[in-house]
Design a protein around this nucleic acid. Structure first.
Length: 421
DNA sequence: TCTGGGGTCCTAGGACCC
DNA sequence: TCTGGGGTCCTAGGACCC
């Protein structure tokens, strides 16, 4: 086979202002005459419960310099007539799935990079699709006409360049970024536009007199490595368009960890109350774990205090577990080990070092009713799946005023790979 | 003034072993 | 008075992504 050196053909599809577009398209389908995309509008969390940040913005909102992630308070200062819509995550998942259904008509080689970004591999399909640009336009237009929202598509022969390409022109656009176009299209951009150059790296690069992606590409990679370790080599390669990872179908097996966290609507000062919130998170983590038939070998908790200081504690387990009660026992113990008594704003629970739950290893000293615990967890999961998560709640939550289950991503989870693309 | 939630990967230091 | 050098595992924290 000589196909090793064969050029690949990769596309990256990015939904323009995803949450906002999906909300707008949905409302239009419901008969609304107002298109949120035409006015200054954002998707934003609930300020009351301390979730008040911008999750997505319309193009008119962007003209007011409103940024994703900034507080709604600050956004409204920039634009007092700003329309704020709460998020509807189930809708986003449905829109994302509908898009995947369309893409499946073109190729099975789809990698769902996030809820609103996909990579497609069209390598060796020139017989079916002789013209990549024409193909991209037909995909883009079909999504627009059938689903009512626009996407931007980048075309190249690796994932990094395809992704950078889809960013070049927005919205509703198709852009190529082949290797011979890098110097013209990518190198003049500010270095912070490069994938994996974030808040912390950009100032370090500026200090080295690196301001554009081209500056980075031309820089001495050894010096970069000495200053930024392995990350320096990664971004130097990206700046030069070097990247060769596969478009790979997401697989439950390669999920590395499952975690949920919550910002509480008030500051928690009571240890027992914190334990209860951890329990509500363990309910979700445990349910997700069992749903994909995994056990974890490590439990970690995270705490964010009222003054936004974050810290965490983790413990490697002696044997894998998947029971809500056991995860909680570890989580509560970890909390007690590190909590300094200050008011707590946010709590998180994460289960990682996953393995299959097929053969659960138990120690001699483990409780003998492990099967009973499993049966109970599984029964509760089934009832909740059928009648909703509120169908069974623990008695300890009854008069607590706290939510008995906390955290998102129940059914159709989509793993996100970041630095590996 | 107010600041989400879901992930992955890397690094550095200490413990421990041979 | 002088105190190695690897390797692996564990933990905490930080950086990045959408």
């Amino acid at each position: 086979m000589t196909s090793k050196s064969k050029q690949r053909l990769i596309m990256h599809i990015d939904v323009n202002s995803a949450y906002l577009s999906w909300e707008a398209a949905y409302r239009m389908q419901q008969g609304s005459s107002l298109d949120l995309r035409d006015i200054p509008s954002v998707i934003g969390g609930d300020v009351e419960s301390r979730h008040g940040i911008v999750l997505a913005k319309s193009i008119p909102a962007k003209k007011y310099n409103i940024q994703t992630g900034e507080t709604l308070f600050s956004a409204r200062q920039k634009c007092p007539e700003l329309i704020v819509i709460p998020p509807h995550y189930e809708l986003y998942m449905m829109a994302s799935n509908a898009m995947i259904d369309i893409l499946n008509d073109y190729t099975p080689a789809i990698q769902r990079f996030s809820v609103d970004e996909m990579f497609l591999d069209f390598t060796s399909m020139e017989y079916h699709y002789p013209d990549p640009i024409e193909l991209a336009y037909s995909i883009k237009d079909r999504i627009k006409h059938e689903l009512g929202f626009t996407v931007s598509i980048g075309i190249s022969n690796n994932k990094l360049l395809a992704k950078m390409g889809s960013d070049l022109k927005k919205p509703d656009a198709v852009t190529t970024l082949y290797p011979d176009e890098i110097s013209k299209k990518m190198w003049p951009l500010p270095v912070e536009d490069l994938f994996m150059v974030g808040r912390a790296t950009a100032p370090k690069l500026h200090k080295l007199n690196i301001f554009t992606i081209g500056d980075l590409a031309a820089y001495d990679s050894d010096i970069l490595k000495s200053k930024l370790k392995s990350h320096g080599i990664v971004i130097w390669n990206f700046a030069n368009g070097n990247e060769n990872s596969d478009v790979r179908k997401s697989n439950v097996i390669d999920v590395k960890g499952i975690g949920n966290s919550t910002t509480i609507s008030f500051d928690v000062t009571d240890r027992k109350e914190a334990h209860l919130i951890l329990l509500s998170l363990c309910e979700m983590v445990g349910m997700r774990l069992r749903h994909q038939e995994s056990c974890c070998n490590l439990v970690a908790i995270s705490i964010k205090s009222h003054d936004f200081i974050s810290y965490s504690r983790q413990r490697k387990l002696y044997y894998p577990i998947d029971s809500t009660a056991k995860i909680w026992r570890v989580a509560a113990a970890l909390f007690d080990e590190v909590w300094k008594g200050e008011p707590v704003r946010n709590l998180g629970v994460r289960a990682s070092e996953l393995c299959t739950n097929e053969f659960i290893q138990t120690t001699m000293f483990d409780d003998k009713d492990i099967e009973k615990t499993r049966d109970l967890d599984n029964t509760i999961d089934k009832v909740r799946l059928k009648y909703g998560t509120a169908a069974i709640i623990r008695g300890s939550f009854l008069h607590s005023g706290l939510s008995p289950i906390n955290g998102g991503i129940g059914e159709e989870s989509y793993p996100v790979m970041t630095s590996i693309l």
